[in-house]
């Protein structure tokens, strides 16, 4: 990992400019927890690392939007998100998920933008944030655009971000009336990467499920939304029967993959169970006021 240059842009535009090159050895560096692993094992040999830490002052704020949602600066550390009073109020599922996300030291330095941009399908936040209807604001040489998080990932460790593009913000709509839950399943030690992550959000009106988002991660090649499970839930009573049918639909729909944490077949069965449990937990958690 020798011989690279660590540069410190003074502005986001300068960072984008530095990154707008046709060279995969030039990469942005924020918390660095994932990139350092790749560098230490020789998987990634950088020539230039564009350090974004100096931009923290402008791009790490957590704020409630006028609509009652959240805007989180991409350079906010996971710890600052976990402990933000605004996040606790608007989207309590996020701090609940954080307790068992990586570990304290990683959360202290990893940034929410980098966590999403890394494209690792085993991360906990992509399913959680996408189930909340979250989006990222992305700035690049061609300007600014917004991408729903459920559409951010194009494959295994791949995202739709293009050359020079950086995530600047994560935005969440108001969660009023939505009930959410995230469950993950590990099959080796408790602190292992998840074998499966399931995040669900439900909007329940008069006991019936008006709308839902069901997301699966880790067991699939990339973060995946499960519309057939959502279709089962739509209009159904928020009870055991609908939950069980949605779980079956999820299991039938998701394309799980084999790895050291379990066979695809087993993960499909886990998915069935965890969708059921996550929906149950979301209903028990109740809607955010």
């Amino acid at each position: 990992m020798r011989g690279f240059e660590l540069v410190h842009p003074a502005s986001l535009d300068e960072a984008i400019k530095l990154l707008d090159v046709d060279d995969p050895t030039v990469r942005p560096f924020s918390g660095g927890t994932a990139l350092m692993l790749m560098m230490k094992t020789g998987v990634f040999q950088p020539s230039i690392l564009v350090h974004l830490g100096g931009l923290e002052a402008e791009h790490a704020a957590v704020a409630v939007t006028p609509e009652g949602g959240l805007r989180i600066g991409a350079l906010a550390t996971l710890t600052s998100v976990e402990h933000s009073a605004e996040v606790v109020r608007v989207a309590p599922v996020i701090p609940r998920a954080m307790k068992r996300l990586a570990n304290v030291r990683v959360r202290n330095v990893a940034r929410i933008g980098g966590n999403l941009a890394h494209g690792d399908p085993h991360m906990d936040l992509p399913p959680v944030l996408s189930s909340l209807g979250g989006a990222v604001t992305v700035r690049g040489p061609g300007g600014t655009r917004s991408i729903p998080i459920e559409g951010l990932f194009s494959g295994y460790y791949e995202t739709v971000l293009t050359r020079g593009e950086l995530i600047t913000d994560v935005t969440l709509p108001s969660q009023r009336g939505w009930a959410s839950a995230y469950l993950k399943c590990t099959t080796r030690s408790a602190d292992d990467w998840p074998t499966l992550g399931v995040a669900v959000s439900l909007k329940v009106t008069d006991g019936a499920i008006a709308e839902s988002r069901v997301m699966v991660s880790a067991a699939t090649e990339k973060l995946t939304r499960l519309p057939s499970a959502e279709a089962v839930l739509k209009g159904a009573n928020a009870g055991e029967d609908a939950v069980a049918r949605a779980a079956d639909a999820a299991a039938a729909e998701a394309e799980t993959i084999d790895d050291a944490r379990g066979s695809a077949e087993y993960k499909t069965e886990l998915l069935r169970v965890y969708v059921k449990r996550a929906l149950g937990e979301a209903i028990r958690n109740g809607a955010v006021q």
């Binding site: 350092m36 710890t79 030291r105 990683v106 202290n108 330095v109």
Partner: peptide, 25 residues
């Protein structure tokens, strides 16, 4: 890999894994 915590130090009062922290930073 930042998983065992043997290299824990504080940087500006925040616990980090020393093995995943570039010294220049």
């Amino acid at each position: 890999q930042g998983l065992c915590g043997c290299c824990t130090v504080l940087v500006d009062g925040v616990a980090v894994s020393g093995c995943l922290t570039l010294a220049q930073l």
